[in-house]
Structure formats: structure tokens, C-alpha cells
Amino acid sequence: MSDNTMPRNAGDIDALAGEYVLGTLDIETRRDIEQRLPEEGALRAAVERWEKRLQPYTRLAEPIEPPAALWGRIEHTLAHASQDAVVRDTLSPPTGPTWLQALWQNLSLWRGLAVCGLAGMLTLGTLTALKPAQPAAPRFLVVLMTPQHSQAGWVVQASSPRDIELIPTGGFEVPPGKTLEFWTKADDWGGPVSLGLIEPGESRHLSLEHLPPLEENQLFELTLEDAGGSPLDHPTGPIQFIGRAVAL
């Protein structure tokens, strides 16, 4: 099921909720249900019933003792999440783009994000979700980090699935005779598509008119190419910064 029409009769809602909890639905339908859960009481109640009925059978999976370091990672992320909360509290009242710009400029937050990776991004997503609804709020966020995840270099902010802005968060020295080229690839595309050459330190607004709408988990990367850009229809140089789109 990947259409957007949700069943209205109780039996169908129950069956859909059952398949959601079992896990057999495709990602689009899963996302659709997850978006509707907060508003649709009948669907939510059906999901909660199936969760309750089936939960005892999670015991069919053998327990696995987590490695000692795992709790440390969780605690580390929580510590940074608290710092993020402080950042949020200092920015009152929240004012949309300004609020986000302040986040972009907060170096300690970016260092935290670089360390925390996905979890950090989840945190930011949650914070953004706490803002009052604003019509022009960005719908996707991508943090482009060095492949070793040690430093965040750029952020992609998407105000719609067709309009993105590439914003530098730190300096980057392009060696002589080289240039940065910006690429993107969604999960089901055959290969990456060039979004053009990028000047370090400059924000760039890009329209994705000729591409499918931006989607969750879509890959973005900046590669170091010879001046003039990659001679082929795919990257030929090393990846400098890379990240995936997170829906906000």
C-alpha cells in the first residue's frame, strides 16, 4: 500500500494498524501512518491495541547484552542535548529564520553535532518541532560533515522540497587548481546528480526544478574536483563533506 488514501471503516483501520505494527508496510505507507497518528484517534487506538497484543512476543528474539560502551554513548548524547536546550532557552522569543541562523552560528553546537551524528540531528529536529508553526519553516535539514564525522562544514536548509540553500558553517581551503562540486542522490536513484560548483564560504540558493522533490535520507556531498568540475556525470574526486536529509 503506497497510496495516500486511508481507510475509514473500523475493520480496515484495524488491519492497517496491524500491518504497521507487524512491520510489513513499505516506508512510504509507514511514514504516512506516523504522520497521521497524532491527529487520528481511531488509528492511534488501533495501533496501540496491536502494540499491546504483540509486545509479549518480542521475547521470541534472544536478548543480546549490549557492549559496555553503548550506555556511555547515550549519556554523551544526552549531555549535548541539554546544551542544545540551553541554546534554545537563550533565544526567546523564537523567530524562525533568525532562530535557525543563531543555531548555524553556534560553534559548540556544531561540534556537538559532529560528535553525536544522527542523534544530534534528531535532537535538532525535535527542538525545531517545538517551535510555533510557521508557514515558511524549513522542511528538511542536512548537516554536511567530513567523512570522519569530525567537523561540520556546511548545512543544507530546504524551505520546500524544491528549494534548498547551502550555508557554510566553517572555513574550507580549496587547493589551487581545484574546485568544490555539490552532488545529491536519493536512495532509489541510479547515481548522483551534480548541483554545480560551490565557492567556499558563500551561501548558495539552488532550485531543484529539474529533479524529483527532495526526500528523507537523500544524500548530499561536496567533492574536490579539478577546476571546472568533474569531467564525467559522477564525482571523480574525494568526498570532503557528506550528509543525509532529515525531515523536520
Partner: peptide, 23 residues
């Protein structure tokens, strides 16, 4: 923690990924 890791590992089939997801 151990039961959750067991449940997640069974679904994703990869230990490193399962630990990331538990995080």
C-alpha cells in the same frame, strides 16, 4: 537494554547498526 538490542538486532541483522539504533 539486552532485550531491546535482541529485538532490534533480529530485525536489522547487523550488530553495529543495531547498537546505533538502540542509541
Amino acid at each position: 537494554g539486552a532485550r531491546l538490542l535482541g529485538v532490534v538486532q533480529r530485525i536489522v541483522g547487523d550488530r553495529a547498526t543495531a547498537e546505533d539504533l538502540i542509541h
